[in-house]
Design a protein around this nucleic acid. Structure first.
Lengths: 337, 337
DNA sequence: TTGTAAGCGTTATCAT
DNA sequence: ATGATAACGCTTACAA
């Protein structure tokens, strides 16, 4: 019972010796290879138990040339991006998917010069068996770096420029149209939008969905203000919209955070929601249930995005050629529109 | 310019050969050891550049017996814990602190049986050089496992049972008292609380702070309802409180999420905030700025918690004996109380 | 300052 | 089925 604080842990050789077999045989048992007799297998298993052997993952990694880990790389201007609960969901999805395997998840924030550098090193040294990349901005050098590094890479959301072979995305254009169409079906005719970052595919796609819906409905009114997906930017954008277009009767915000910011501004401006101004968000985060009023929003299956990115990456690592995946969005009607 | 898809990468031996020195010398340059002549160093550096050498972290790890990574382990019932933006902040803090080093961050969710098992393996195989553990429940086996595994471990928040030598925490009792005292100073006398999980130290400590404040103020009124830190539980708790104590005039919720849930219920019940019922939360998450009305809350420096846990772990890994750290909380006055 | 040689703890190859 | 033997790519005494 008295465990030494740091006793050297047994090696496979010691297990083999104790079991009276070769190290090779012991290794075979560990990797449950077929070609090992019942007797020896049992002996090895017993020795492992008696010695409390655990295999050294690093040595294994060196010999197999597999890192035993994949990375989730989150880009952005600022570590504060993680304040967005969106990422937590992606991480949860990825993490759950990895539980089936024996791969670890390493998390990288490429949100500073130093962070970028470290990600580059990660890619070049092949410290992981594959990478998932999220929230890349338009000209993010990471896109190329990842592609050129030759490690399996899947993207969360299409990067803005260039083609990437493997990605998981949602149909942002369609989602934005669902949102806008809903507002139109409510009889709104002066619908504004708070866009996301316009140097990202999501930002652009959601704006396009908004524009298409209006065009198809033959509505001439247009009013756009750019945000950056944060609540604060949503407030600023809403203030600007109100200043320039006091006659607007609805707003489509490109995500829930910005919609929440917009709601505050509308409230302070004394404009009732939805009576005077209807609001629709995008994401379906928990926050959208607890704004006042609760937000009508376009739900995207965020956990699934993380899960599917991971599965796609595993498939890629296994040498397959998976197809890109587009997940569906659904409109959730609550009280804000 | 035509890079082969998978060309074998040069080894240190090849660099050494090219530079016309021993592998040992090359290794010394890499680890910028002092004992290597200017001339050889330059030659090695040049060879590295010409060959595009990057050192293999796995081999290095095997030789140095250091994994080159630390883990952040998040416990809980359900991967959904990550929906709480709280963790994103901790991760951001940890990640930023690690940028200074060459350690990677591996993220583990011990939120399922499988997840628990994998964490155990992580600990036993020493796949990381140290671990940070968060949100441990009262009898979480992880506490002991981590302690017994003999890997450097720092806890985020004191575990409920037993003593742990290294942890970073905030003064939850004091924070809760700040909140409750504030309500008292507002003239409220029938102050209820929505507690957090009562098998965690945070949950208990914040309840204690609430109780102490009332006792010191000589207020007899008590009304408690337990939540689990989620918005939904905050709603349920608020409903129960309203049912049993319709005369309450203030609520201290043990975190912002639950406070947000409470606000919704109060609103639906037609009780104005703060006029009829004042509300104070805890955390100071972004969400607290965008509830209606914005939440008065006890801010805790979440990013700093992540950062300090990391620093403490690094210090521990370096063989030092850091002292536990208690970070301060501050009351942020907004409109809800 | 420099290099030789011996690890680090596995897995993979190839006879037997 | 079995076991030597040679990788895997780096660090680190120890000796010169």
């Amino acid at each position: 019972m008295t465990d030494e604080p740091t006793r050297r842990r047994p090696t496979l050789d010691e297990v083999a010796e104790r079991a009276g077999v070769s190290r090779t045989a012991a290794s075979r048992v560990l990797n449950n290879a077929p070609n090992v007799s019942r007797g020896k297998r049992d002996a090895v298993l017993r020795a492992i138990k008696e010695l409390g052997y655990v295999r050294n993952p690093t040595a294994r990694a060196l010999a197999t040339r597999q890192a035993g880990a994949v990375a989730l790389i989150i880009s952005g201007e600022d570590p504060a991006v993680l304040a967005d609960p969106f990422y937590g969901q992606v991480i949860a999805g990825a993490s759950t998917a990895l539980e089936e395997t024996d791969l670890h998840l390493v998390l990288c924030l490429a949100t500073s010069a130093r962070g970028q550098t470290r990600v580059e090193q990660l890619l070049q040294t092949r410290a992981v068996d594959g990478v998932m990349l999220m929230s890349l901005r338009g000209d993010d050098p990471l896109t190329c770096l990842a592609l050129e590094a030759g490690v399996p890479a899947v993207f969360g959301g299409k990067p803005l420029h260039g083609q990437v072979p493997y990605y998981v995305d949602v149909d942002n254009v369609r989602g934005a149209r669902q949102a806008t169409d809903h507002l139109i079906s409510l009889g709104r005719t002066r619908i504004a939008t708070i866009t996301g970052l316009l140097d990202t595919d999501v930002g652009l796609a959601r704006r396009r969905g908004y524009q298409e819906a209006l065009t198809l409905a033959g509505l001439p009114f247009r009013a756009e203000e750019a945000g950056d997906f944060t609540e604060r930017s949503g407030m600023a954008a809403m203030e600007a919209l109100l200043a320039h277009h006091p006659d607007l009767d609805a707003v489509f915000a490109a995500n829930d955070n910005m919609a929440a910011g917009a709601l505050r501004v509308l409230h302070r401006a004394g404009r009732t929601v939805p009576a005077r101004t209807a609001v629709v968000g995008f994401d379906g985060l928990t926050v959208s249930e607890f704004t006042e009023p609760p937000l009508t929003t376009v739900h995207q299956p965020i956990r699934d995005i993380g899960r599917e990115m991971t599965r796609m990456l595993l498939s890629l690592i296994a040498g397959e050629k998976p197809s890109p995946l587009i997940l569906p969005t659904t409109l959730i009607r609550r009280e804000s529109a």
